[in-house]
């Protein structure tokens, strides 16, 4: 009844089959109450930490969301450490040392991720610069219009102007 296919095998067809679909379609881990810590405050800390850690064999899932064996092991490690009195930072450091950057869903700021973390500032600064440049160009643009207006009249324009002047002179001559 409860035979669940291995996690990765379940995810792969879901990804391949799903059209442009929503997350790696795999049913959730329901969890096991026995894993949880008795102290609600400690358990809340463990879950907050767990949501920052990646289930290494899954597609973009935190260890709290996955029912892969590895995720369960990591959940237990997190809770074990917390029960032993480790701080949040110590627990994360412990797992980071063992599994590397890949385990952190919030990538650490390193030379390799500097560009990633700078992306919001770069995008905003780049966009703002482009807007300022465009505004400056626009401020120059009206001058160009003025120059164009000051250009000598073409032959056709001169003829039209003469016709208008002639018509005006005609109107003036007529008694009102």
């Amino acid at each position: 009844m409860t035979t669940i296919r291995p996690r990765r095998a379940a995810i792969l067809p879901a990804l391949l089959l799903a059209p442009l679909l929503f997350p790696a379609a795999a049913p959730a881990a329901v969890g096991d109450p026995r894993e949880r810590l008795a102290d609600p405050a400690q358990e809340a800390r463990a879950r907050a930490i767990g949501r920052e850690l990646r289930c290494l064999v899954c597609q973009n899932q935190s260890i709290e969301d996955s029912n892969a064996d590895l995720a369960r092991d990591l959940r237990l490690i997190v809770r074990e450490r917390i029960a032993q009195g480790a701080t949040d930072a110590e627990v994360v450091r412990y797992l980071h040392e063992r599994y590397g950057d890949f385990v952190l869903l919030r990538p650490p700021v390193t030379a390799a991720t500097a560009l990633l973390w700078a992306a919001p500032a770069l995008a905003l600064a780049g966009g703002a610069t482009a807007i300022l440049l465009a505004l400056r160009r626009r401020r120059v643009a009206p001058d160009a219009v003025v120059e164009e207006a000051a250009a000598p009249l073409t032959e056709a324009e001169r003829a039209r102007l003469a016709a208008i002047e002639a018509a005006a002179a005609e109107r003036d001559r007529r008694p009102s």
Partner: peptide, 9 residues
């Protein structure tokens, strides 16, 4: 480098 970029980011 293998890194993850997840919801916290």
């Amino acid at each position: 480098v293998k890194i993850s970029v997840g919801p916290p980011f």
